[in-house]
Simulated scan of single mutants.
Amino acid sequence: MSSSHAPSVLRIATTVFWSFFGVRKRSRHDVNTVTLKPLHLIAGAVLGAALFVGTLLTAVHFITR
């Protein structure tokens, strides 16, 4: 597989980020469906959710101190 066909980390991260909000253009969705692998998206979503929860826990910790 050449590097031009491999998805970038930034592309996966932006796809997951906008998917969390449910806001994506249909044309971008169609492109991502063809080019991104489900395993990459699942890994990105798990990492994104962990970062989100960690950020919330850290904020609550500092606010309630």
Results as ranks from 00 to 15, higher is better:
L51N: 05
L56V: 15
S19R: 00
L51W: 11
I12A: 02
L51F: 06
L39R: 11
K25F: 11
F21S: 13
L39N: 01
K25C: 00
L56Q: 10
R11T: 00
V9K: 15
M1W: 10
A59Q: 14
G44E: 05
R28T: 10
P7H: 03
H61E: 13
L41F: 13
T64S: 14
K37H: 07
L10T: 07
A45K: 01
T58M: 04
V53G: 01
K37G: 04
A45S: 15
T64I: 13
A49F: 08
G48D: 03
V23S: 01
H29A: 10
F21W: 05
K25P: 01
W18S: 04
V16S: 03
P38M: 09
S27C: 11
K37Y: 13
I12V: 15
R24M: 14
A59L: 12
H40T: 00
L47M: 13
T15W: 07
V9G: 04
L39Q: 05
P7D: 09
V16N: 04
G22K: 05
T15Q: 06
F62Q: 07
V9Q: 15
T15C: 10
L10Y: 14
W18E: 11
T14S: 13
L36E: 09
T33N: 09
R65A: 11
V53D: 02
A59C: 13
M1Q: 03
H5Q: 07
G48F: 02
S4N: 03
T15D: 06
K25S: 06
T58D: 03
S19L: 06
V53C: 01
A49V: 13
W18P: 00
T15F: 07
L47P: 04
S19T: 11
A43I: 07
A6G: 02
L47Q: 10
F17M: 11
S4T: 12
T64Y: 02
L39I: 11
R11H: 02
L57Y: 12
A6L: 11
L10Q: 14
S4W: 09
R26T: 14
V60T: 14
G54E: 07
N32C: 15
L39A: 09
R65Q: 12
V31S: 08
T33R: 09
P38G: 03
V16W: 02
F62A: 09
V60F: 06
L51A: 11
H61Q: 12
L41C: 09
H5K: 08
T55Y: 01
T33C: 12
H5E: 10
I12P: 00
K37L: 14
S2M: 03
H5T: 12
A49K: 02
H61G: 07
S3Y: 05
F52H: 15
R24D: 06
V60R: 04
S27A: 12
V60C: 02
F21C: 08
I42S: 09
F20R: 04
T55M: 00
I42L: 15
